[in-house]
Design a protein around this nucleic acid. Sequence first.
DNA 1: ACTCACGGGACAGCCCGTTCTT
DNA 2: AAGAACGGGCTGTCCCGTGAGT
Lengths: 206, 206, 206, 206
Amino acid sequence: LSQPFRSTNSSKGESTRQAILEHAAPLFNQRGFEGCSITDIMAATGLQKGGIYRHFSSKEELAEAAFRHSLKLTLRRRRGDLTQARTPLDKLRLLVEHFVHTPTAVAGGCPLLNTAVDTDDGNPALRTLVRRAFRAWRRRISSLAQQAIDAHELRPDTDVLWLANTVISTLEGAVMLSRLERSKTPLLHAQQTLNLLLDTLASKRR
Amino acid sequence: LSQPFRSTNSSKGESTRQAILEHAAPLFNQRGFEGCSITDIMAATGLQKGGIYRHFSSKEELAEAAFRHSLKLTLRRRRGDLTQARTPLDKLRLLVEHFVHTPTAVAGGCPLLNTAVDTDDGNPALRTLVRRAFRAWRRRISSLAQQAIDAHELRPDTDVLWLANTVISTLEGAVMLSRLERSKTPLLHAQQTLNLLLDTLASKRR
Amino acid sequence: LSQPFRSTNSSKGESTRQAILEHAAPLFNQRGFEGCSITDIMAATGLQKGGIYRHFSSKEELAEAAFRHSLKLTLRRRRGDLTQARTPLDKLRLLVEHFVHTPTAVAGGCPLLNTAVDTDDGNPALRTLVRRAFRAWRRRISSLAQQAIDAHELRPDTDVLWLANTVISTLEGAVMLSRLERSKTPLLHAQQTLNLLLDTLASKRR
Amino acid sequence: LSQPFRSTNSSKGESTRQAILEHAAPLFNQRGFEGCSITDIMAATGLQKGGIYRHFSSKEELAEAAFRHSLKLTLRRRRGDLTQARTPLDKLRLLVEHFVHTPTAVAGGCPLLNTAVDTDDGNPALRTLVRRAFRAWRRRISSLAQQAIDAHELRPDTDVLWLANTVISTLEGAVMLSRLERSKTPLLHAQQTLNLLLDTLASKRR
DNA sequence: ACTCACGGGACAGCCCGTTCTT
DNA sequence: AAGAACGGGCTGTCCCGTGAGT
């Protein structure tokens, strides 16, 4: 039952690896894979090249690990505490509200959006990771939507996948616009839209 | 009567410049600024460096011109023929339908989305161009929305800027998802969403 | 008897050609073939590329013509007026004195020395020209020496080729040193040496 | 007892640097600074640009180091073993003989002559090096001449600087001619001349 | 566990020589 | 004669990954 193997982190090496990821994640998120050099990460971490390559065998591997790190932080932050909402529909609204009002966990905006666009051309490994992350998110939303349907909060004929895609598209598109304009307005508009949409789906129920 | 003025393009150099842009635009759109080298463009155009740098003084300038080129093509294609729709509201629906069903004018997806994300970190000149393009698009949509309001097709209290931002966010977010999943579904879902939204705004009118 | 064909120079084109040579000759002489670009010559002449390539089909041809030009000027200046000296031996002394005290006809030092060193590696056409020029010079000196022998001014067993080579080597070596040190001293020393040598060859005559 | 000090060369980098110099020196000596590209040196050394620029920060610096290398080899070879000569005057004769009969240490002829002519126009750093090298050589010769005077082998009124300049001029001029004609004759003639000159200065002593 | 030297490789921007059109 | 156009080469920089040393 006890695990004699190295726990999550204990050795010096493991903490160094974490430190590298913490510094590399925002860099990759801001500048993309090509726009970010090992030298940049050396400067950010204070390590030398050899010190970095000891922990990651290539830039690709480092980028992937950094993305996983960004993802973990982002999901943790976005998850929020939905238990404060009583009903599934309220949970959906809270989820949207939380997304809109929570600052990004990693500098440079939403890592999912950034990486999806950045890897559009190549890097299939990273691309798969992003796809998986979006699918998990979609599952979570559609699951809540299904619960809302089951709770008679939403019309029974609501397509939960459509709803999930809509929530994600609207929010991520708004993130892009918000970052471009350096203004929260698009995000707030997205929240309005999604709330209105949920109202509609609910009101039409009867 | 003779016209010594040089028309838009006639000289050999101008046609070369255009050829460069036509080949460079999809490369930049697919790989981003950092991910695309002058050597790539040399290979794509069949020109040597001297032939390229004669027309563009730097990679930045080339990227900017290529983006303008992408933008021009994209806008031309997206503009579509809204005269086929009778009312402003129908024009809005047609605009959305056109966006969803028209393939991108330049390989690599929507240049506005790609460039907005790619220049999130640096390159303010390009960033300004993207911002301007989105604003023009938003104006176009909000103007149609205003016309729909004036025609009593939409609720008079509809916030046209909100509506425009919503349309753009939802469509662009869906573009990202569609490219990531290599599936049109997210785009079709976005169309559904926007049509439902317009229905709602219309039905609530009375 | 009259010659209706273009004489040495008359047309506008011919004068342009001469102007190019006059400006190009010192440039090539100072910087060498590789160290001097067509752009430099454009700047010096005020002409554009097309204007230069109209008269010379390549940089090599231009360099060769420029060297011929330098050579012509140099020989004209070095020839001096040896008729002022009464005897062949005095002519030799006067030739040396003239070489030492006459400034170079073309900026950048002795074109024979410069071109000999510059073409040491390649450019056989130019190299042949230099060789020929040195041989003509050597013939001239050895011819004077032979006349001095015939006039019983120099020992009859004097090797006139040796003497000619010695004069040339000493003078050209001194030119190199003088330019390096920016001082006339090495040239004056060479004159002393050659005079002493001629004295010796004369005194030993009996 | 341990020696923490780094000896002349031991590390891998130092040997690479030496290898670069060994290959670059003859190239620069043959083709001159402008006539020799880094690409040429890459081909000669088998290294890539990164490997070369790691050791030299610019082409200028490389050329300077290559010239120092050429100079070192040349001086070492020319120095010869003058102890075989008994008297100062004999040492002078031996010095001349050694110069005439010893092949150049670096392909392309005498680096001092070549560089003096090549840098006549620009590159003051290199120019200073050449000047210094000639001055050292002149000091060496004039010092031997002074010893010969002190030993009553040469006339006491001999101008040792004149003599040194004469030796250098005659030899270097002959090197130029010899390379131009691809014949040792001019060098042999120079030796004859200098021996005759020394004879004269000696014989006139009494 | 980390530093630092090392070197292969690619890249951007510049310039050069030459041709072609005007 | 001007000057635009273009193929090609070059310099200096950067980057990535390795390996010796510590």
